[in-house]
Design a protein around this nucleic acid. Structure first.
Length: 145
DNA sequence: GCCAACGTTGGC
DNA sequence: GCCAACGTTGGC
């Protein structure tokens, strides 16, 4: 049976890869993840899953929504000689947040106290519960599916 | 296999 | 620019 849709949040430093680049490119490999927890999350993604696109460091806000266009496959950017295997997925831009949701807003709301973004600030790929997804969409004025 | 030292990330 | 959190490395 088809499992319920999963929601995610991925982080990127705008200096390295920004939302504008994601939009310009349309579909883009999400590479460079070198953390095992994040890797496990990448592997759990299914085509069509939706994810927030969060700018870390600069902005510190959710700026858009992307969809998984291709499920986990070996990351082509892995340095030669690296131990273990790392994976990436392809992400497709869906649309911008009408009102970007800032980290400050999220932290100010007790409902998000157990959101991974707050609890594990260094994790770059994390699941978002359906409840959190819905509420973040409301905060951001997201009208998509 | 444990633990201290160190490096990196990310918020402030 | 500083500091806290946390993952990784290396000595034992």
């Amino acid at each position: 049976m088809a499992p319920a849709r999963q929601y995610w949040l991925v982080k990127s430093e705008p200096d390295a890869f920004s939302w504008d680049q994601q939009v310009a490119n349309g579909t883009e490999p999400w590479t460079g993840v070198r953390n095992h927890m994040a890797k496990a999350n990448l592997k759990a993604m299914r085509t069509g899953d939706l994810s927030f696109f969060y700018h870390s460091n600069e902005g510190k806000e959710i700026v858009g929504v992307v969809a998984v266009a291709r499920e986990a496959y070996p990351d082509p950017t892995v340095e030669p000689g690296t131990k273990g295997e790392w994976v990436c997925v392809d992400m497709k831009a869906v649309g911008p947040m009408p009102k970007p949701v800032t980290l400050a807003e999220i932290k100010a709301d007790p409902d998000f106290a157990d959101l991974a973004l707050v609890r594990m600030s260094r994790l770059s790929v994390m699941p978002v519960s359906a409840e959190h997804w819905k509420k973040l969409c409301q905060l951001g004025g997201w009208k998509g599916k």
